[in-house]
Simulated assay, not measured.
Amino acid sequence: MPETASATPVLPSSLPALSAQAERLIELGVHEIAGLPAAELRSFAEAAEDTADCDGALLAVHPDRAPASALAPLLRRDGKAGFIVVDMPDVDLFAPLDTVPLPDAPLYLLTGVDRGDRMADWSPNEALPALTAEARTPLLITEGIHWVLQQPTVLERNHCFMTIGSRLRKANGALDARTPAIWISNGTGRDGRERRDAPKVGWCWAGNRHTWLGFASATGRRSQGS
């Protein structure tokens, strides 16, 4: 397990401008994964930048177009590629909760993204109703990956985050107890020593608490013009 959380986390810097975020996704080939022309990402970002309330927004590709399994390997930290834990082969089956509606568009924005450090040492079962009461929406796995792709400093050792907007529903309708998170590997166990310090997409039990995991959330999602 990661080390005990330090007393003072380093606050992440601001997100790049939306036009720069679009270029970053194009550079990484995310538009090709999503089956979108590069020009569509650029035009979406340019139009959104003309909107008054888009400052600090995160550009995201709909998970139906760019799943977590395709995005996670694009993450980098200290020159090491991101990965998904071996016991999460079903990562792309983790879908948005019923209370997390997504825009019906290939590209959309998230506003007011926050790492949720204040909820460190809360369980997912405790954090979700608290976020809902604050009119905040939990991030999806893919949204969390998009955030780290654009703002790598948001993933800080001992101050990482969960993305509990994505959950797996069993055949009987009940939620799987695994809740996804993004953190930094210590290179132990099945991760492999060579992956120490690499970005890692994994999971924790819904009822467990971890001092080193906050709960990433946003104030909302919107497509262009909404």
Rank of each mutant, 00 (worst) to 15 (best):
2 P>I: 07
3 E>D: 09
3 E>H: 14
6 S>T: 12
7 A>E: 13
8 T>W: 13
9 P>D: 01
11 L>D: 15
12 P>N: 12
13 S>L: 05
13 S>C: 10
13 S>T: 11
17 A>Y: 09
18 L>T: 04
19 S>R: 11
21 Q>P: 00
23 E>N: 10
24 R>H: 06
24 R>K: 09
24 R>M: 05
25 L>V: 00
26 I>H: 09
27 E>A: 07
28 L>V: 01
29 G>V: 06
29 G>L: 07
29 G>M: 05
32 E>L: 08
35 G>Y: 06
38 A>Q: 12
42 R>V: 10
43 S>W: 04
47 A>H: 12
48 A>F: 12
49 E>P: 02
50 D>M: 11
50 D>P: 00
52 A>E: 03
53 D>K: 12
59 L>Y: 01
60 A>E: 01
67 P>T: 06
68 A>W: 07
73 P>Q: 09
73 P>N: 08
73 P>K: 04
75 L>G: 04
78 D>G: 14
82 G>H: 06
82 G>N: 08
84 I>W: 04
85 V>M: 08
87 D>F: 14
88 M>F: 15
88 M>A: 11
89 P>A: 14
91 V>N: 01
91 V>G: 05
95 A>H: 11
95 A>F: 10
96 P>S: 05
97 L>A: 11
100 V>E: 06
100 V>A: 05
101 P>S: 04
101 P>F: 07
102 L>R: 00
103 P>C: 00
104 D>W: 11
105 A>P: 00
106 P>I: 01
108 Y>Q: 01
110 L>V: 07
114 D>S: 09
114 D>L: 04
116 G>V: 03
116 G>A: 00
116 G>E: 00
118 R>P: 07
118 R>H: 09
118 R>Y: 10
120 A>W: 01
122 W>L: 06
125 N>G: 12
125 N>D: 15
128 L>R: 07
128 L>Q: 05
129 P>G: 03
130 A>E: 15
135 A>S: 14
136 R>D: 00
137 T>K: 05
139 L>A: 06
141 I>V: 12
145 I>W: 05
145 I>D: 02
145 I>F: 04
147 W>G: 01
147 W>D: 00
148 V>P: 01
148 V>G: 03
150 Q>L: 15
151 Q>L: 13
152 P>Y: 14
154 V>Y: 13
154 V>A: 09
155 L>F: 09
157 R>W: 04
158 N>F: 08
159 H>L: 06
159 H>M: 05
160 C>A: 14
161 F>I: 05
164 I>R: 03
166 S>Q: 00
166 S>Y: 08
167 R>P: 00
167 R>M: 06
168 L>R: 15
170 K>T: 03
171 A>R: 10
177 A>P: 13
180 P>Y: 07
183 W>G: 03
185 S>M: 11
187 G>Q: 02
190 R>S: 11
190 R>F: 14
191 D>G: 08
194 E>Q: 12
197 D>T: 15
197 D>R: 15
197 D>A: 13
198 A>F: 13
201 V>M: 02
201 V>P: 00
205 W>H: 14
207 G>S: 10
208 N>Y: 14
209 R>L: 03
210 H>D: 12
211 T>D: 12
214 G>W: 08
214 G>T: 01
217 S>I: 02
222 R>Y: 03
224 Q>Y: 13
